[in-house]
Computed example of a mutant assay.
Amino acid sequence: MSATKRIVVFGGNGFLGSRICRAAVARNWDVTSVSRSGTPHWSSITSSPTPPSWSHKVTWSRGDIFHPPQWTALLHKADYVVHSLGILLEADYKGVLSGRQSPLSGLAKAFNPAKGAHSRNPLERVRDEEPGIEAAPPTSPAQLTYEMMNRDSTILLAKEAAREGVKAFGFVSAAGGAPVLPGRYLSTKREAEAVVAREFPEMRGVFFRPPFMYDRSRTVTMGMAAMVTAGSVFNGLTGGVLGGFLGAAGTKPLKADAVADAVVEALADESVKGPVEVPQLEELASRAWRKTML
């Protein structure tokens, strides 16, 4: 009988992260979630405020990604580590979705060319920082930039995971950017992928590139998914003539549960490495679903 696998999911109380935890629990893995708030606010990520039955099998830990001493001990003897943190807009994007903040305000912050200028080049920090040294954390929501959340936090986590001998590092990246998002959203994701692959070759890096994700529990995603699906169908009928312009909007959306299943299936398969694009995500999710039918 094989030993129980251990997975640590950073951002495990979020929309996708919680579903990755669910998929890992279904495989009887030992699951730990790390986030600043610990236990999820279930009403914001599911259709009910009541914790689902599987959630009681997850260790919900508190920790700030930019303060390694708060969470490095959790990586000890972990088989897999997943980075599922990030921001869609350089703003309180959860506030945008809930109506507390204007989407226009979020977009204005995202397209501000001055954002990210304070963030030191992570290519240098990877080599220079010593074990136990805390990264300079954001001190206000205005400092939550793409460079810090999409790129720097990923590299910081990968460095600590490699130091602990973690077998595989999963990073939730993104499919080609939709035109409504600034180029830095995707470029910082790609920078993180490149640094992790180059600097930590001893650790299998798996970079998931999902399209727009939806779930009925988050109603705002359903209407957006319908629009994205229409763009995908049009792109297919025209032979992808507008693929470069549509970006992720030209790729059919996937259900968040399917992406989560694909993440766990990929981590368990030692042959999966590097970027995982949408077709492979679908194949991995299908493979995971078939296993549940056996």
Rank of each mutant, 00 (worst) to 15 (best):
H67L: 12
G223H: 07
S48A: 03
I20M: 02
W29Q: 12
M213N: 10
G231M: 08
S44H: 05
P279Y: 11
M149P: 00
G274W: 04
L107T: 01
T229P: 01
L74H: 14
M293V: 11
E282K: 13
Y93S: 14
E277W: 01
L89V: 04
K159G: 12
A260C: 00
W42V: 06
L186Q: 13
A256W: 02
A108W: 02
L156M: 14
V228N: 00
D30V: 05
R163V: 10
A249T: 12
P275A: 10
R19N: 12
A108Y: 01
T39V: 13
P201V: 11
G95N: 03
K167F: 00
P68Y: 01
A117Q: 13
F245W: 15
V263A: 05
S173G: 03
P49F: 06
P122I: 06
F208P: 02
P211E: 08
S53E: 15
L123A: 13
F111W: 05
K291C: 02
A168S: 15
L97E: 06
A285N: 05
D79K: 09
R218V: 14
K109N: 14
R287M: 10
Q70G: 02
R6V: 11
E90G: 00
M149W: 07
S61M: 12
K77L: 12
T292A: 12
E160F: 11
L267R: 03
R22Y: 05
R198Q: 14
K291R: 15
N121M: 04
P210W: 07
Y214N: 01
M203P: 00
E160H: 14
G183H: 07
S153K: 06
K291D: 10
E265D: 11
M293T: 13
I7T: 08
M149H: 03
G106I: 00
P179Q: 05
V81Q: 02
V195A: 11
V34W: 05
V196I: 14
R100H: 10
P113A: 04
W71D: 07
M293P: 00
P103D: 02
R120M: 07
V126H: 10
R209I: 09
L281W: 03
A194Y: 07
R190S: 09
L237G: 04
A114Y: 06
S173P: 01
K189M: 02
L156G: 13
P182T: 01
R209F: 09
E164C: 09
A23Y: 00
V220Y: 14
V259M: 05
S105E: 15
A168G: 06
I133G: 04
W29D: 06
S119I: 15
S2P: 15
E199T: 04
V9P: 01
H118F: 12
L88G: 00
A26Y: 03
F212Y: 10
M222T: 09
P275C: 08
P141W: 01
L75G: 08
K255L: 10
N112K: 03
R287H: 07
R151K: 10
D152Y: 06
T72W: 09
R151C: 13
I45A: 02
A260D: 02
P210S: 08
P211Y: 03
S187R: 08
M148D: 12
N150D: 15
S2N: 15
L254R: 04
D128A: 14
E134C: 14
L144Y: 04
T251D: 12
A258Q: 13
G247K: 06
T154R: 05
A175V: 07
E191T: 11
G86P: 04
N121P: 03
G170F: 01
A136M: 12
G106P: 00
P253M: 02
